[in-house]
Design a protein around this nucleic acid. Structure first.
Lengths: 246, 246
DNA sequence: CGGATCGTTGAGTTGTATCAAGACGGGTGG
DNA sequence: CCACCCGTCTTGATACAACTCAACGATCCG
């Protein structure tokens, strides 16, 4: 369980330990990372295209998204992030941001200077590898979303996104059985699956009438996981979670 | 210029040097990497979903693509790679392949054991960082393609892809002025931009009649770069090339 | 000179966008 | 505590980008 008061350090250590077993020395190094907490409201930009950040952040609480705007003003959300994620870790090696990030809900972020992370990576190759891996999983999710947007219909894409949310939230202890809170508006969902708001609304209704999901407010319940999974053409492999059981 | 006989080692060193200045010791370490060359014909799979490779490859000559298949048998190409790229570098830290890779033209590949790369990364953090960066640029391109597929029309997407090809090929010396060879079929282009073959064909005609491109066989010429760039809504930032001049 | 692959065209269909307007709901200020 | 407002969700009607199916032309190659 990720309690709201979970320290950013512990969250990070827990995350990395799900990837590699950490020695005491490595844990110590992580514990002594300077992390500065910050609270943000909904719909606030964290970093923007063109920025040259000198720090990364770990998402401690809340949801964030990564998005791009086209010259016509259309928005594509290319990723959502959940507690435990480090959404802009890539800024460690890519000087200029090619994307923007914003909060989707009120959030708690833990900022870590690039300097500190670089020193950590140089001193502890296994930690470097684990962080590298994090960015690779992000990339893997991009690939999966891309094939969804390019080759699946929006009904299936929506189902897919719900499957992904459930699995990722479960991995950080934010599900209750087959239920979870999805504090994301239909506008945001539309921008994520590359559809219009109107259509997302209709797709949701279809998912409901087909008995694939039940919703009460922001709560989503999955009555029949296998059925949703099938509709979504969902294979969790791309999430590269360590415990691939269901 | 990347001559066909360019050694894989030199190609790799040149690539990394465009990112970080390498010391003699680092160059030496790279020179002593065991690289095994292999020649492949067109349309051959290199790695497949589910594989657990124990080596990476550097593309020395030719074009490759990364693709996924949906359960309905549709294919989405999520990336093309050109000489100098290391398409499956991510397999170094993600055990199981979530995508497949195949040749698009006859290719020369240089295979490098994971073992050797891991040792290299542990001993030379700056090389590790440069390789990490490579995978981050790949991810950045995924993001850009995703917003194209999700939020741009296919005409613009096609223009965008052509812009990208030109810039990436130019970066490795494979362009002649504003011309380059694009040895990719319309079927493959369609799978890349998430459209049907028929539609790609029509888009190509439109691009031609609008004077944005001229083609002779696999040769593509860009008469007016600015115009193509504008139609594509193309901003090269996402490629994270070091010399961002045009 | 077949045969295979790739490119091109035409016609009909459909998924999804757009536009417009109304319903709901939760927060704020008077 | 009510009235108002703004964001979100919902619904209907219309339009169009892009798909599918089907066939034909062009090349290249053995």
């Amino acid at each position: 369980m990720v309690a709201p008061y979970a320290s950013a350090h512990n969250l990070m250590i827990r995350k990395l330990e799900s990837i590699v077993a950490l020695s005491d020395e490595e844990k110590q190094a992580l514990q002594s990372l300077p992390i500065q907490l910050a609270a943000l409201k909904t719909d606030q930009d964290i970093v923007c295209v063109g920025d040259r950040p000198s720090q990364c952040f770990m998402l401690v609480e809340g949801f964030t998204c990564v998005y791009k705007l086209t010259s016509e003003g259309k928005r594509q959300i290319v990723a959502f992030h959940v507690p435990g994620d480090m959404p802009d870790l890539h800024s460690l090696h890519l000087e200029v941001m090619d994307i923007s990030m914003a909060t989707v809900t009120p959030c708690t972020l833990g900022f870590i200077p690039h300097e500190a992370l670089r020193r950590l990576c140089e001193g502890y190759p296994r930690i470097a590898a684990a962080l590298w891996r994090e960015t690779l999983v992000d990339a893997s999710i991009f690939r999966e979303w891309m094939t969804g947007i390019g080759r699946r219909e929006s009904y299936n894409r929506m189902a897919h996104l719900l499957c992904e949310f459930w699995m990722r939230l479960r991995a950080v202890g934010l599900t209750q059985g087959h239920s979870f809170t999805l504090p994301v508006t239909q506008v945001e969902l539309a921008d994520a699956i590359g559809a219009s708001t109107v259509h997302v609304n209709r797709v949701f209704q279809e998912l409901r009438t087909n008995g694939l999901i039940r919703t009460t407010g922001a709560q989503v319940n999955i009555p029949d996981w296998e059925k949703l999974k099938e509709a979504a053409d969902f294979d969790p492999l791309y999430l590269h979670l360590r415990q691939d059981d269901e």
